[in-house]
Design a protein around this nucleic acid. Sequence first.
RNA 1: GCUCCUGUAGCUUAAUGGAUAAAGCAACGGUCUUCGGAACCGUUGAUGGGGGUUCGAUUCCCUUCAGGAGCACCA
Length: 580
Amino acid sequence: MKFTIDKAIKTAIQKTLKDLGFPETQVSLEHPAVEVHGDYSSNIALTLFPSLRSASRRSGNLKFSSPRQLAESIVDELSSNKELKKIVSKIEVASPGFINFILNEKLLIIGLEEILKEKNGYGSSNSAKGKTMVIDYSAPNIAKRFTIGHLRSTIIGQAIYNIYKFLGWKCIGDNHLGDWGTQFGKMIVAIRKWAGKSVDELTIDEMESLYVRFHQEAETNKELDEEARVAFKALEDGKKEERELWKKLVIRSMEEFQKIYDLLGVKIDEVYGESYYESMMPPIIDEAKKKGVAIESKGALIIPYPKDALPPSMLLKSDGGTTYLTRDLATIKFRKEKWNPDLMIYEVGSEQTLHFRQVFLAVELLGWAKRNQFFHIPHGLIRLKEGKISTRKGNAVKLEQVLTEAIDRAKKFNDDPEISKMVGIGAVKYNDLKHSPSTGYVFDWAEMINLDGNSGPYLQYTHARCRSVLNKAGVFPSSFFPLPSSLNFEELSILRFIYRFPEVVMEAAKQYAPNLVCTFLYELAQRFNTFYNKHRILGDNAQRSTFNAQLVFRLLLTSSVAQVLKNGLALLGIQSPNAM
RNA sequence: GCUCCUGUAGCUUAAUGGAUAAAGCAACGGUCUUCGGAACCGUUGAUGGGGGUUCGAUUCCCUUCAGGAGCACCA
């Protein structure tokens, strides 16, 4: 087991509590929000006090009159702990009863050594070795444009994938293409009626216009919906003409999606579309019937959920066609058989929350797996200032346009097309990832391609700045010692922060929240830039040829910052150019 | 009608029940003979309303108002 500071402090506290005669308790440690409260803080005295008070009321023997007093006696006991002395330089009690720990500066420097030793692996772990997860993300719909809505799923999904992989999981990314369903009946009808040319020549925009037109005309012409149902049934039944039309739609669409994936630098392991599960559905329907999970209702086959926990969902339509649910169940069965994952994650919009709750419950009713082996990351919608984005209304923002615009903007700073691409794409990705996935946000052109402030390019810039200074130094020291006799506030503020990176990565995985990584990196970069602005790293010309303690330390610090920024950005799927 | 989600500064967002609610944008003022100004420092400014639980609430509970999403033949 690897030594960690928080574990050592926790152990010391637990030992002390035991010595003081307390029963075994969970001790929580946190990093206080404000520096003056130390590097670690425990609220143990505050949480322990109420039960202590009520116990003493019964016995009439009040040992401590306040949480603060309790904290003080814990600290008295702690200060004689030899192990703790090595780690902590100061322990303080703060009102109303927090115990604050200030770490030994020497220990903080060990943190840098670790970063420089582990390099690109710093922050990674193999604690999840042997575990497998499947993540379902991106999932654009065939014959529809790839919108900023799919961008969220793609980018967040990829970040989650990267983070889990970094923590030792075996990860399988699956792009669950929307390439099946009644909508293709609609497309087939629309193409036959209005396309006026071969499917091979249609652009996605044109496909989408046909889809929009279908919905407009169907409002007055009710027969269209019926025609579409028939066409999809024909497709499901394997009629040759419909099949060929559909196949071409898929191929054309994928060609266009590939351009976006190339721009984003995203490559998803597997692309089993919904259509892939077509033949696997009948046995599942049988199984659901046999197990009494599904029942017939109004000509359709539905799954009622026990005790009205959730509204019923439909397995088969009254015309015998399958639904989204049928396909999702087939997909789960397939994934279980193929990879037997410990965890299946869905990075899909929050409007499908109910659907996934139904799916996960259905899986449990069928006895395939436990609900807690599944997780839906429900990302919030990206809204427009004018309101909701809807393909049918045709007001969707073109993703390709967003990406090229962002790259163009980056070009103003740099002639190198490769670098402008890294920066522009980095800006768009970071802008999305910095928001917590669960809440939506308002799409704003200026914000999306912003290169200042809390942005991807700011982090890339800070990384490039570090690299530039290191280059200028020419040589790189191989050892830390002798250390400078004292460290200034800005140096310490980096040291007291940078070692938390691995914790942040773990927390981001646990909470499915890449934005935690963003926030951490941004704060690290800010701390570095503040330091950079106030102090010189490379001394003046005369000294540059000779190493001294301060120069050595600052070079190692700069190098560590660059490394952590790079590792963090890599998790977010953002590249870190050495110059920009 | 029922269910779920969201209301934080002028705007867009952060904050495992913790201490003085944190940033970016915008605005205004400052830093620049110095290692990369895509930078740094400063000023103004916020938890929709009302109750409750708690040593302590943006966070949990109740209520109310406002917005969004979902609720069987779409996915």
